[in-house]
Simulated assay, not measured.
Amino acid sequence: MEYKDYYQTLGVAKTASEEEIKKAYRKLVRKYHPDVSKEADAQKKTQEINEAYGVLGDAEKRAAYDDLGRGQHYRAGQEFRPPPDWGRGFGGNGGGAAGAGGFGGFGGGDPGSDFFADLFANLGGGRRRQQAPQRGEDSHASITIELTDSYHGATRSISLMVAERDAQDRIVTRERNLSVNIPKGVTAGQQLRLSGQGQPGAAGPGDLYLEIQFRADARYRIDGRDVYQTVPVTPWEMALGGEIEVGTPSGKVNVTVPAGSQSGRKLRLRGRGIPGKEAGDLYLLLEVVLPPAATDRQRELYQTMAREMAFNPRAGG
């Protein structure tokens, strides 16, 4: 079988702390999640990331994995077979009836079988001391929503790739579909906790944490709970002022454009940002949009303006 460098997969040093490993795992899961990733091999990368974290995120498996490579210089992809005495002291049978390989005798596994399954499928076999049943690992992923979902709340369906064991105790991945309630007032970076939707465990499943991301929209810029929205305005509305109707994430509103406004002017609507205990504000950024000069009459009007207004915005520059 081929050796896998799980530290290389997660992009961490072999001395990385538990928190550093968890942080790297979460970052990579978000990057390669099928809902957001543009990578052609996102599904394969997700499987590799989950497999690596399944070892390095477990103290006992990591200790055994580190022991396997201690004093060696294995490279990812290198043809590999575990030493005959590997696994002693990490929950194997220490050379009893199951064989001298430890971990239930997987020291001389079939070179063609999966690296992870060969080494860790039977972790804890033999005469391992009894331990209290463990709860399953928490899972982490991201979900991309529209800004309006945060204003009104919504229900969204997501698909996740999850790792699990099949009937032959091999690690496989499958697609899992979930319906997620998006509460009103969520912000970018906030995590939604779905109880019991994480990895299975003897004492019950872990939880699933979904990090909120807003879908990119050229109309909006979001800063915490404040929202900045670009609003196109005609030259006469800017020059003469008046009331205009604007569609916002919370619905249509009527706002007054002060006479003599220029592009970039900011109108503040208090409390119309993302809802919350302290709602954010909505800032409307006025941007003048010129009408076309596609016909003779339209060009004539522009020529009249040029003659009669004699306006030079670069004067004195």
Rank of each mutant, 00 (worst) to 15 (best):
A154T: 04
R176P: 00
T173I: 12
S142Y: 01
T144C: 09
A188F: 02
N181V: 14
P183Y: 06
S150L: 02
R165M: 08
Y151W: 11
T144G: 06
E175I: 13
Q134G: 13
I145K: 07
I143R: 03
G189K: 03
A132C: 03
G185P: 00
V162L: 06
I145F: 11
P183N: 10
I171M: 13
E175L: 09
D149I: 01
T148D: 08
T144H: 04
K184Q: 15
L147T: 06
Q131S: 14
Q130R: 11
E164G: 12
N181C: 02
I158L: 11
T187H: 01
Q168Y: 07
P133V: 14
S159W: 09
M161F: 05
H152N: 10
R135K: 15
L178W: 05
G136C: 10
R129W: 08
V162P: 01
H140K: 00
N181H: 14
T148H: 02
N181P: 05
V162Q: 04
N181A: 14
G185R: 00
S157I: 04
K184V: 10
D166H: 08
G185W: 02
V172W: 00
M161P: 02
V186K: 03
T155Q: 12
G189R: 07
S139R: 03
L147G: 07
L178F: 09
S142C: 11
E146P: 02
I145M: 09
R174W: 03
H140D: 04
T187V: 15
L178Y: 05
A163S: 15
R128V: 04
V186E: 02
I158N: 06
T155F: 05
A132E: 15
R135F: 11
G185E: 03
R174N: 10
G189A: 10
D169K: 15
I158M: 05
G126T: 07
Q190I: 09
R129F: 10
V162Y: 01
Q131E: 13
V162D: 02
A154W: 01
T173A: 05
H152M: 05
N181L: 08
L147P: 00
D169C: 01
N177E: 15
R135E: 11
K184G: 07
L178E: 08
Q130S: 11
T187K: 04
T155S: 11
G185C: 05
L178H: 00
E137R: 15
E164Y: 12
D166K: 09
G153D: 09
